[in-house]
């Protein structure tokens, strides 16, 4: 239970960074931290006390394995997170090229 709460604290740190900071790179950092927290929560839910990793080996009959389903979901989610982070960085670099700053309060001409 306390583990879930620590994971939630990490998520709310990411939310705080997204909502409060003015720098675009800091906002991307907040998105990354929130994404880490969500991935961690999936794996925490899948854990089984005293379990083994879900890889069968020859001749062994181990039955207490952890849940493989959230691990499979998180595996795709991590790669998607990298792609979306790259997309955010590309947009941030184009904004820097156009306005000369990373500060979102200095960007006034929203018409493009």
């Amino acid at each position: 239970m306390a583990v879930y709460l620590l994971c939630l604290v990490l998520f709310s740190l990411g939310i705080y960074c997204i909502l409060r900071k003015r720098n675009i790179i800091k906002i991307i950092v907040g998105v990354i931290i929130a994404e880490y927290a969500v991935n961690l929560f999936f794996i925490l839910v899948a854990y089984r006390m005293g379990g083994r990793s879900p890889i069968l080996s020859e001749g062994a009959t181990i039955k207490n394995m952890v849940d493989p389903l959230p691990q499979a979901l998180v595996l795709t989610s991590i790669v998607i997170g990298l792609a979306t982070t790259a997309l955010l960085v590309a947009i941030a670099m184009k904004i820097y090229e156009k306005y000369g700053t990373f500060d979102i309060t200095k960007i006034k001409e929203l018409k493009g």
């Binding site: 792609a83 790259a86 590309a90 670099m93 820097y96 090229e97 000369g100």
Partner: peptide, 23 residues
């Protein structure tokens, strides 16, 4: 798919030359 896609993203970001034009 993953390897070539991420490599083309990385190359696109490396080749992007920044020159701020607002000044």
């Amino acid at each position: 798919k993953v390897g070539a896609g991420l490599f083309s993203i990385f190359v696109a970001l490396v080749l992007l030359k920044l020159k701020p034009t607002s000044e």
